[in-house]
Simulated scan of single mutants.
Amino acid sequence: METRSPSALAEEWIERWSPTEGSAGGKVEASVLDGELPREQPDLCLDAILEILGRIDTSSPNHLLGVLAAGPLEDLLTYNGDVVVAEVDLLARRDPGFRLLLNGVWDSRIKPNILARLAKYRNNPW
């Protein structure tokens, strides 16, 4: 897999998942952030997620936030939660937008110890 910058990954992901006129949003093909990146490059994945958060509305649940929560962040916590949980904990503590994103994650595949560590931030699921 070629390595791209978090900024380039964010731009591609937002373009693929942004609603366009006459559609509900989301193109047919997924981005690398929706597939291999959460499994193979957790740090780059988290950096790209943060880059996306800096570019989208994080004031309330919305389409892009939902896709980001139930896609890349959920996959990252599922496959590499042990690797990123300390940083995710810190981000959730400091950033209300990240905390909102974390509340949109579906937790059925995430290890119980990861969920337990992040439970204090996940009190408002949407």
Rank of each mutant, 00 (worst) to 15 (best):
S7G: 06
S7F: 04
S7H: 07
A8C: 03
A8V: 07
A8I: 02
A8Y: 00
A8F: 00
A10T: 03
A10W: 00
E11V: 09
E11D: 12
E12R: 00
E12M: 02
E12I: 00
E12L: 09
W13P: 04
W13R: 00
W13H: 03
I14M: 08
I14N: 08
E15M: 03
E15P: 02
E15D: 10
R16L: 14
R16N: 02
W17C: 10
W17R: 15
S18Y: 00
P19L: 04
T20W: 00
T20K: 13
T20V: 03
E21Y: 04
G22P: 05
S23Q: 04
A24E: 06
A24T: 04
A24I: 01
G25N: 04
G25P: 09
G26W: 00
K27D: 10
V28H: 07
V28N: 06
E29W: 11
E29P: 00
E29C: 04
E29Q: 11
A30H: 08
A30T: 02
A30L: 12
S31W: 01
S31G: 15
S31M: 05
S31V: 11
V32G: 07
V32C: 05
V32T: 08
V32M: 09
L33W: 05
D34L: 01
D34T: 05
D34N: 14
D34I: 01
D34M: 02
G35Y: 05
G35P: 00
G35I: 00
E36S: 14
L37Y: 11
L37F: 09
P38N: 09
R39C: 09
R39D: 02
E40I: 01
E40N: 12
P42A: 09
P42I: 11
P42W: 03
P42Q: 10
D43L: 08
D43Q: 14
D43C: 03
D43H: 11
L44P: 12
C45T: 13
L46G: 10
L46Y: 05
L46M: 12
L46S: 09
D47M: 06
D47C: 02
A48I: 06
A48D: 12
I49V: 15
I49R: 02
L50H: 08
L50W: 11
L50K: 15
L50Y: 03
E51G: 03
I52K: 04
L53N: 09
L53F: 12
G54I: 06
G54S: 10
R55C: 04
R55W: 01
R55Q: 15
R55H: 03
R55G: 08
R55L: 11
I56F: 07
I56R: 08
D57K: 12
D57C: 10
T58M: 11
T58R: 14
T58V: 14
T58Q: 12
S59D: 15
S60T: 07
S60E: 15
P61M: 08
P61T: 10
H63V: 11
H63C: 07
L64N: 07
L64F: 09
L64Q: 10
L64A: 10
L64D: 07
L64V: 10
L65R: 11
L65F: 04
L65E: 09
L65Q: 10
G66Q: 06
V67P: 02
V67L: 06
V67G: 05
L68N: 13
L68F: 05
A69N: 09
A69K: 01
A69F: 01
